[in-house]
């Protein structure tokens, strides 16, 4: 499967080492057709490919991807500037079950870069395409400077209640300080009628799930997005295996009730 060529239409540095690219088709491909929660394989010329989740709106003809510069491929992607090119294969994987949301209370819980795959969900609320009875976002980051999309948080309040927290704050910070499980634990929920979308580092998800189960949310109402090494995204390279699951084709979004036995096994 050969990537389509995309052009970088916009580039924003979120914070040092992390940028958000808006990319549009240059030859081949048609952006915009995806479900929230899916991902693309982005190819930086000569440096490699990496799986990056969709973090824009599903309807505007552009793919938006937030990239943290870490390995060879993400470093190369991070170096790209407006007008430059990259390769794109996708979209791949399962999305967030948006059909579960209507009429229920939607709880979005994001840790760090885990906010990126959840932003399309928030856009869907803002666009009125998905109508929960109410919605709340709990978003935790390490430091205030590492909070993604801060310029938009204000606007998001139109669609949902936003609670932010950081592990440490050296500067003035209006949100909470401490791990995300604290405000999550303090939240009042109609547990029976809540659906949760959860994404962040695995440890953070583990703790959040404990809190949620403790509040009476059913394992079948919790959805989470998993990360594993991916080379192919099409079920051939074997890298993303997680128990019987291939994260690239069976996930990345799973219902906790379906995978809890695997989630509990370390180094799987």
């Amino acid at each position: 499967m050969v990537p389509d060529i995309y052009r970088i239409a916009s580039r924003t540095e979120e914070f040092p080492g992390t940028c958000t690219l808006g990319i549009t088709p240059h030859s081949g491909g048609r952006a915009g057709n995806f479900s929230a929660g899916q991902f693309n394989m982005l190819y930086a010329f000569g440096a490699g490919e990496v799986a990056i989740s969709m973090s824009g709106s599903a309807q505007d003809g552009t793919y938006i991807h937030t990239i943290r510069s870490q390995g060879l491929a993400t470093q190369a992607l991070h170096r790209l500037r407006e007008g430059e090119f990259l390769g794109v294969r996708g979209p791949f994987g399962s999305g967030w079950p948006m059909e579960q949301v209507a009429g229920r209370h939607l709880l979005i819980v994001a840790g760090g870069l885990g906010m990126a795959p959840l932003r399309p969900v928030i856009y869907s609320l803002l666009e009125g395409k998905t109508q929960p009875s109410s919605a709340q976002l709990f978003y935790g980051a390490r430091r205030p400077q590492e909070m993604l999309y801060t310029g938009e948080l204000q606007r998001w309040q139109q669609a949902l209640k936003v609670v932010t927290t950081v592990d440490h704050a050296e500067t003035e910070w209006p949100g909470q300080i401490g791990v995300i499980t604290k405000p999550l634990g303090a939240a009042t929920l109609d547990a029976e009628n809540t659906v949760v979308f959860l994404c962040g580092p695995e440890v953070m998800m583990r703790f959040c799930i404990q809190v949620l189960l403790g509040k009476g949310v059913s394992a079948d109402a919790i959805y989470l997005s998993m990360e594993r090494n991916m080379k192919c995204a099409i079920g051939h390279c074997g890298h993303c295996q997680w128990g019987p699951n291939f994260i690239c084709k069976d996930g990345p979004v799973f219902r906790y009730g379906d995978i809890r036995a695997w989630f509990d096994i370390r180094a799987l």
């Binding site: 010329f45 000569g46 080379k231 390279c237 890298h239």
Partner: peptide
Amino acid sequence: FCSTVEDTTDLSGDHA
């Protein structure tokens, strides 16, 4: 069946 990929460029840097 597992596989991985290798991405390389040549000396000119224009061919990968």
